[in-house]
Design a protein around this nucleic acid. Structure first.
Length: 620
RNA sequence: GGUCCUAUGGAGAAGUGGCUUAACUCAUCGCCCUCUCAAGGCGACAUUCACGGGUUCGAAUCCCGUUGGGAUCACCA
């Protein structure tokens, strides 16, 4: 007659310690009343997922505000999926987002008295507990092969029964100790299963910090707790680790709700008090193919990886702020009232968390990101942008290094003032916005057809630009500059103010805004660009062509004197397709410059340095 | 398919039986301001809370059913 003890000794001959030893080695934590011990337990299988960042944010917050402990545990029991080095990376990324654990696995080292914090290094601990379970007859070795299990599943499917290893289907459960002993002696591969005493018909009450109480069927599956590779499965490791690491609050993704009965059962069988659970909703996105919501997917969605936001030049804090609005519905009002500052003072509550997974909202992220970025002065902003560019964006780095002061001045347009512009949400697309300042990016800027208002004919545009070219002078004084523009406008019959124009639109060609827009589009290639007066100054256009702003080179002159309807002068296709009814196939796009205007910026860039300082902002 | 969760506008949501002719934020649109672009100010955007029943003097709020969405059913976590 083989006893459980003998069987356990056969399987784990080296394990001599007991659960009591472990209890002593990992004593209860000495923490103030109400302190929560939370943990983030990632697998080293890749980069930090946005959902994981969300979870760890909540963990960090809950621990901090209760004066508890937040630690990281590496769950590396799946050796097949493990990606070398990703554990360290995970920690680095958390740090970038300002989430630093108090304890646990910290990448290059461990900290704390409840370790090891890497599961593969805890194998001996799991064995102690499993041996105990074996001795108590609450666990047993199972010799079924994957083929056996596959057949079992097919049989169950045919009979329309719940699939799995349970009750009468749990063949190895009924093996005698002699049989088990024999098989092990013979070197048969085995796993260890937990012997479930649950009944699928029974409902148990479970409680969740965000969902409240609900009922769920008892677990009747004899789940694997010890794999043939000698490592535990998640369920078992969770029970053991969170018990001995003295976790008070398990915060994890919603996908774990379904296995809660297993965990509850495990804790009960071990005679341990289960932690509190909080299952967080998953961040979703609408799938473009199906139109349905689905979990943010690392493979399909770039925003699923936290690194994307960093590489695109978002301030980490903006993502954190956005995630917090998902975490607590009252956060948004709070942070608005607090002018986007000191978000660490916000009190998080599980009750204010929505149960449904929110759709990731890029627009809202951008909103927070702009509000955050607008707080920096030009030098802070420039240095942040430069730090980013050096790491992730060589193009931007080149632009900044070309002339750092110029860059700072561009960034300063309408910045250091009461109601600053909010042009930038991230550093990654800055060049798309201000590329026109840089000569070597100019062709990029005018790649698309320029968005001139269709109400103006080509003749109107020529007239306006020619006048501007000849008469408008760059000025650091916005008032003078604009008066000049108005004068030109008035002469060409553009209403000097909007009221006049609105009162009698027929009497005018357009209003001064239209004229400014024509100039803006010509200079910048866009309908909205920073303050034009400053733009002109920074472009250094005043030094060319005896004070005129636009330098017409050969093609322009040629074109201005040619008839608009003749054929393809320079071999470029028409860029005016949107005005097809007027100018179909009219070749007015010359030498890579729209409208035949060659903005030959070279001299400006060569001579700019001297004039870069002292740019006035004339907004009140 | 079984089990669990869930359902308020384009998005995030407040709302727990009468205070709601449904807060607030983002987005969108409009107006105002203005000397352009912004910024700012103001306003519009769910006569209705997935649908169908019921309870009630009264329901977005409670109950039942239907439908939709999500999660989960591994020697993965």
């Amino acid at each position: 007659m083989i006893t459980n003890k003998q069987l356990a000794d056969l399987i784990f001959p080296d394990v001599t310690e007991t659960i009591d030893d472990l209890e002593k080695r990992y004593p209860l934590r000495d923490l103030p009343e109400g302190a929560q011990v939370t943990r983030f337990a990632p697998s080293p299988t890749g980069f930090l997922h946005t959902g994981s960042l969300f979870t760890s944010l909540v963990c960090r917050k809950v621990a901090s505000q209760s004066k508890g402990v937040f630690y990281v545990r590496l769950e590396d029991t799946d050796t097949k999926r493990e990606i070398a080095g990703s554990g360290e990376q995970l920690l680095d990324q958390l740090h970038v987002f300002g989430i630093d654990p108090d304890e646990g696995y910290l990448g290059n080292h461990e900290k704390g008295n409840y370790g090891p914090y890497v599961q593969s290094k805890r194998a001996h601990i799991y064995k102690i507990v499993i041996k105990h379970l074996l001795e108590e007859g609450k666990a047993y070795p199972c010799f079924c092969t994957s083929n056996d299990l596959e057949e079992l599943r097919k049989e169950q499917e045919a009979k329309k029964l719940n699939p799995g290893y349970y009750g009468e289907f749990a063949k190895c459960r009924n093996l005698s100790n002699e049989e088990k002993y024999e098989k092990i002696k013979n070197g048969e591969h085995f796993v260890i299963r937990f012997k479930s005493d649950g009944n699928h018909e029974n409902k148990i009450k479970v409680s969740d910090l965000v969902r409240g109480e609900f009922e769920i069927a008892e677990n009747d599956q004899d789940i694997v707790i010890y794999k043939s590779d000698g490592l535990p499965t998640y369920h078992f490791a969770h029970a053991v680790d969170d018990h001995f690491m003295r976790t008070t609050t398990v915060i994890r993704g919603e996908e774990w709700v379904a296995s809660l009965p297993i965990h509850v059962q495990l804790f009960r069988a071990l005679g341990w008090k289960a932690p509190k659970y909080a299952h967080l909703p998953v961040i979703m996105k609408v799938d473009e193919e199906t139109g349905n919501k689905r979990k943010l997917s690392k493979r399909k969605d770039r925003e699923a990886a936290c690194s994307y936001f960093i590489e695109d030049g978002y301030l980490p804090q903006s993502l954190i702020m956005y995630l917090m609005t998902i975490a607590n519905s009252n956060f948004e009002e709070w942070i608005l009232a607090n002018k986007f500052e000191h978000m660490e003072d916000f009190t998080f509550s599980f009750k204010k968390m929505s149960l449904e997974g929110a759709l990731f909202d890029m627009g809202k992220l951008n909103f927070f990101a702009r509000e955050l970025l607008v707080k920096y002065n030009k030098d802070e902003f420039t240095s942040l942008a430069y730090d980013y560019a050096k790491k992730y964006n060589p193009e931007l780095q080149k632009a900044i290094e070309f002339d750092k002061e110029l860059f700072a001045n561009i960034m300063n347009i309408d910045r250091e003032k009461a109601n600053p512009r909010k042009d930038y949400e991230k550093f990654g697309n800055i060049l798309d916005i201000i590329g026109f300042f840089y000569k070597d990016r100019y062709n990029e800027v005018i790649k698309e057809p320029l968005p001139f208002n269709e109400k103006f004919s080509k003749e109107d545009l020529i007239e306006a630009l020619t006048a501007i070219k000849n008469e408008l002078k760059t000025n650091t004084d916005e008032q003078i500059w604009f008066n000049d523009l108005k004068e030109i406008g008035t002469r060409l019959n553009y209403a000097a103010n909007n009221k006049d124009y609105k009162a009698n639109p027929e009497a005018y060609k357009g209003n001064i805004g239209d004229l400014a827009e024509i100039l803006r589009i010509t200079l910048t290639g866009r309908k909205n660009a920073p303050n034009l007066c400053v733009v002109m100054y920074l472009l250094g256009l005043e030094e060319t062509h005896s004070g005129s702003i636009i330098t017409p080179a050969g093609p322009m002159e040629k074109w201005l004197n040619s008839s608009p309807s003749q054929g393809d002068i320079h071999g470029f296709e028409s860029r005016w397709d949107h005005q097809a009814e007027l100018y179909t196939n009219t070749p007015i796009y010359c030498d890579g410059r729209l409208f035949g205007i060659t903005l030959d910026l070279k001299p400006f860039f060569e001579r700019r340095r001297a004039r870069l300082t002292n740019v006035k902002n004339h907004s009140k």
